[in-house]
Measured scan of single mutants.
Amino acid sequence: MSRVPSPPPPAEMSSGPVAESWCYTQIKVVKFSYMWTINNFSFCREEMGEVIKSSTFSSGANDKLKWCLRVNPKGLDEESKDYLSLYLLLVSCPKSEVRAKFKFSILNAKGEETKAMESQRAYRFVQGKDWGFKKFIRRDFLLDEANGLLPDDKLTLFCEVSVVQDSVNISGQNTMNMVKVPECRLADELGGLWENSRFTDCCLCVAGQEFQAHKAILAARSPVFSAMFEHEMEESKKNRVEINDVEPEVFKEMMCFIYTGKAPNLDKMADDLLAAADKYALERLKVMCEDALCSNLSVENAAEILILADLHSADQLKTQAVDFINYHASDVLETSGWKSMVVSHPHLVAEAYRSLASAQCPFLGPPRKRLKQS
């Protein structure tokens, strides 16, 4: 649940008159999402009104509101027999009622949201009550392989729920002597030191190019640089560091992050930047690179990204790559990247197969709970 924001200063709310007192009302909304995959969808019983329910879910471990999704594969009634019906059901509720908006969509073979439908307002739910769409999607369109909505005969539904909580009022009075504290510009100011090479005390040599930097900042941000300058190493004695395995453009992006906490060109060089972040123990930059690479996972590059993640101990990226390969196994196994990995990294192939087997055979063990970014 997000923290209630402070109200904007009255002088910034309007260029008009300023009242002596004010009130700011925040209506709290808890948002969460749920993904439900139905394997072997074409084998569902086709009687009209037949119901399939998901397991229950909530916004978190401490949330007492429990929900589930309900599907009628062949419609709810005679009117909707040519459609799939989809509903959000409130299973248990400690209150007399709650209000919530919802959005349903289908994830296609690429994991993209399609055929989205959402409620136009927050509906009133009581325990045992459901709301949804009797005519969510035509069955003939859903079952047509050309539309790519049932890869490997799996129907994957994605649901986003927004639950309306209580409202909170914050009130106060205006004073004539309003003090406005300026925003912190530390990142910009440190970035200026790097860009202008002011007050530098060490030189970093990268592929024949020299960059002036500040030992204190490098040591504070990177345990690797800290070790170089702290001990009686040649880098500490000469205040000069030779860097041979990072390209200059990648190095500059890494230094921008060290000084400012930002990497504006990360998406263009996420793979190389991940390697640099791993070498210099820049954990936050490493996770930022993992996130960017996750966003660009595809059938063509899944094997290469899995190898990269394994090489640099990028655990979150590795998990996402394995899950992606499992979901698109029939396509990924035909790529040149996968065939190369079979020869060069057989242990990763074995890991992917083990994960695929456990996903398809849940009876082999208890269900695993899916539970950071600093």
Rank of each mutant, 00 (worst) to 15 (best):
P367M: 14
P5R: 04
Y259N: 01
C202A: 10
T260H: 04
N177C: 02
V91C: 11
I307D: 01
W36M: 01
E160W: 05
S54I: 01
V51Q: 02
G75L: 11
P10K: 04
R45V: 12
T156P: 13
V29G: 13
E47C: 01
C361N: 14
I325N: 00
D63Q: 01
D323S: 07
D77G: 07
A329E: 07
S33I: 14
S105V: 10
K74G: 08
S42P: 08
R99I: 12
A116D: 11
D331C: 12
D272P: 03
I137S: 05
A292D: 03
D63Y: 12
E242G: 02
N265C: 02
D310Q: 03
A187G: 02
N326A: 08
S6K: 04
G172Y: 03
V322E: 10
M35I: 05
A309G: 05
M341A: 15
N72E: 14
N177K: 04
A61M: 03
P248L: 04
Q320N: 08
N296W: 13
D245R: 12
M1R: 00
E232L: 13
F43Y: 07
L348R: 04
P10H: 04
Y353N: 00
A100N: 14
A19C: 02
D271S: 06
W67L: 07
T175D: 05
N174R: 07
L69V: 10
F324T: 10
E304M: 02
Q316G: 09
V224C: 14
L76F: 12
E249F: 04
N40W: 09
N108K: 15
D153G: 07
L143E: 13
K268P: 09
W194K: 11
A281H: 06
S340V: 14
W36H: 13
A207M: 13
A187K: 11
E195G: 02
L364Y: 15
H312L: 04
A207N: 15
F102D: 00
A187F: 09
S85W: 08
Y24V: 09
D323F: 13
S96L: 14
K66E: 03
D291N: 04
E46H: 10
F141E: 14
C159T: 04
C202L: 14
C361P: 09
P248G: 09
L293E: 13
K28R: 13
F199A: 15
V342G: 14
D82N: 05
G365V: 13
V4R: 11
D271E: 03
P8W: 08
F363T: 14
P151Q: 05
C184Q: 05
V349P: 06
G16W: 05
L107K: 14
F229K: 13
L76E: 02
F136K: 00
V126L: 13
G208S: 03
F136E: 01
S6L: 02
S344Y: 04
Q165V: 01
E234K: 12
K103T: 15
D144P: 02
F41A: 07
E234Y: 15
N177F: 04
K262T: 02
Q373P: 08
I307K: 03
W22K: 08
E290I: 10
D153P: 12
E283G: 05
M233P: 14
A270R: 02
M233G: 14
V250A: 01
Q320L: 05
A109S: 09
A303P: 06
D63K: 08
C294Y: 06
F43G: 12
V343G: 15
E145P: 11
E12P: 08
D201H: 00
L356F: 11
M288T: 01
S58F: 05
C205N: 15
F229T: 15
C23Y: 04
K115V: 12
C203H: 11
K110R: 07
L274Y: 06
V98C: 14
G60M: 08
N39W: 09
F199L: 15
A213V: 11
N147I: 04
D201N: 06
T260Q: 14
H328T: 03
W36L: 06
L142P: 09
S92Y: 02
F41M: 08
Q209Y: 09
W194M: 12
D166F: 03
S59P: 03
N62H: 05
G128R: 10
E189S: 13
L155V: 15
M13H: 09
D271G: 02
D267R: 07
N265V: 13
L155C: 12
E210Q: 13
S295L: 14
Q212I: 12
F199P: 00
D267E: 04
K237P: 11
A303E: 01
I106E: 01
